[in-house]
Simulated assay, not measured.
Amino acid sequence: MFAPRVAVASLSGESDAAWADAAVPHVGAAFLGGVALDDASQAAARDLVARGRSEFLADDPVGFVAAQLGSLDEFGGEDRFVAVNVRATSPDPIRAVAAVCADRGAGVEINAHCRQDELCAVGCGETLLRDSDRLAAYVAAAAESGASVGAKVRAEIDGVDLPNLAATLADAGADWLHVDAMDSEAVIADVAAAAPDLFLVANNGVRGRETATEYLDYGADAVSVGRPSDNPRVLCRVRTAVDDWFAGREDAAESGDESGVSA
């Protein structure tokens, strides 16, 4: 899906085109956003700004996404990938932004991750994890455009069977799943087994060799860096660890020792 197998993860109000371009020497993917697409999600975002959080606020959020994708200077090349993390309370805005992304070769990532009360109150963010039918409908709506589609989800939500949800989203047309593993890193192995066709991006605490290797050993296809995504030293450490891990797997395959996959 992308190479190198390191991504930078969306940080609301911070992850724009300039941020993505700055990460280019170290990563193969960038998830811009999150972007609130409709009136309810935008109102929630304004409430978040009022209490001191950063958010992208735009009169025309779909136009904002188009402008951001159009202003990417460095994030090109057939091996790199860009997606936009979005929030909405119905499928129609997702269809609209997915069409823009499809035209520009970008993907759409449905936000089922944010846990702020304001967003959850309007049905966005992690509330979607407990409403798998609605989340699957959002994925299917985005997939209609021909854009690559994924979702960002969170582990450790009571009553949510994340592996089962992953399989449901794969059936709905998802191409990838971006998992914030929280303190349950081993959930990556369960998700990978339940939905083997999904490209699995593991997130949370990725800072260097130990964390990156752990997620890859559990079956992640790639890892993403969140808060330190503007720190080139962290990105360099993670990129080196990931490259080494995949090099070790290739060496093991060539020697016939499939067990020696970890560097």
Rank of each mutant, 00 (worst) to 15 (best):
V97D: 07
C114P: 00
G63Q: 02
I157V: 15
A192Q: 10
A192H: 10
Q68P: 07
T127I: 05
V86Y: 09
L69K: 02
T127L: 09
A141W: 05
K152L: 04
Q116W: 03
D158L: 08
A112Q: 08
D59E: 14
V62C: 06
A186K: 12
H178P: 03
A192V: 08
G146L: 10
E78H: 11
A151S: 09
S145N: 06
D190E: 14
I94D: 05
G107S: 10
L177R: 08
E78L: 04
N85G: 00
R154C: 02
T127P: 01
C124I: 04
I110E: 00
V149I: 12
C124D: 06
I157L: 13
G173I: 00
N85P: 03
A155V: 12
I94Y: 12
H113Q: 14
T168A: 11
G173Q: 06
A140V: 02
E126A: 14
R87S: 10
V108I: 15
A174M: 06
S71C: 07
E55V: 15
D161H: 09
I157F: 06
Q116P: 00
V62P: 00
S148L: 15
E156C: 13
S145Q: 11
F56S: 05
E74I: 00
R104Y: 03
E185Q: 14
A170Q: 15
A98Y: 03
G173Y: 13
P91A: 09
V97S: 02
V191C: 10
R134F: 13
L128E: 08
A83C: 14
E144R: 14
G150M: 09
D60Q: 02
S54E: 11
C124Q: 05
Q116A: 11
S184G: 01
V149W: 07
L135W: 06
A170S: 15
S90D: 04
A136N: 04
A121H: 11
A102W: 05
S148C: 12
L128W: 10
K152P: 02
A88D: 08
G76R: 15
G76C: 05
S90V: 00
I110S: 05
S132D: 13
A192L: 01
A58V: 00
G63Y: 00
A172Q: 13
L129H: 02
G150C: 09
D183Q: 13
D133S: 11
A147F: 08
R95Y: 07
